[in-house]
């Protein structure tokens, strides 16, 4: 998928968990990605993060560290 679409999808997930109470929003994003994203999608996200992760929600960036 295009990076643009991947960024949109990841940011959507982060937008939801960002509204949730408690301090574990990034963990929520990471858990959701692990549960629902197929490994090649995760790999694309990690590559993108390695390349700077432009336009990604900070929660995705934080979640990326535990993927």
């Amino acid at each position: 998928m295009t990076d643009e679409k991947m960024v949109l999808m990841a940011n959507q997930i982060a937008s939801f968990f960002g509204t949730q109470p408690g301090g574990d929003q990034a963990a929520g994003v990471a858990a959701h990605l692990k549960d629902f994203w197929e490994p090649r999608m995760i790999a694309q996200l990690k590559d993108y993060l390695a390349g700077g992760g432009a336009n990604l929600n900070p929660l995705v960036v934080e979640a990326g560290e535990s993927l």
Partner: peptide, 18 residues
């Protein structure tokens, strides 16, 4: 043990050639 592709992801992966 890893989740697979959902329909939209299958189509994206197809366009990507995987």
């Amino acid at each position: 043990p890893e989740p697979g592709l959902r329909i939209p992801n299958m189509l994206d992966a197809a366009v990507d050639g995987t």
